[in-house]
């Protein structure tokens, strides 16, 4: 098999497995949703977003220069902007722009 047809198979596998993961809970609980699952459905969103924050920051190196300073500063800015203006777009653009400046110019 050529390299590109093998790559096409891998793309198909990644797609199929991702689709499967997304559909599985809907299939498993298609008839009756247990109260426990309903409960998880209520409390998971907040927990998952917390998990995603850590997930995104997982590769931050805090044991060597710049000790995670760009992430810390940009994250603090996002929190402050969001708490102040309550506009997600503004918080994201502001935090990202500052992060890019920090990694490209300040801590380069």
């Amino acid at each position: 098999m050529s390299a590109s047809s093998h790559a096409a198979v891998l793309v198909a596998v990644m797609s199929a497995v991702t689709v499967l993961l997304r559909f599985l809970p809907f299939w498993v609980f298609r008839k009756k949703v247990p109260a426990y699952i309903t409960y998880l459905g209520k409390v998971l969103p907040a927990a998952i977003i917390g998990m995603l924050v850590i997930y995104c920051l997982k590769d931050t190196v805090i044991t060597a220069a710049p000790f995670g300073a760009p992430e810390l500063i940009a994250a603090a800015l996002v929190i402050l902007l969001q708490a102040w203006k309550r506009n997600a777009l503004l918080s994201i653009l502001g935090g990202t722009a500052v992060y890019m400046l920090l990694v490209q110019l300040v801590f380069a």
Partner: peptide, 17 residues
Amino acid sequence: AGIEFSMTALFIASFTE
């Protein structure tokens, strides 16, 4: 370089909200 932070920023903004 650093543009990938926008994903992190989205989750931090959602978490804060």
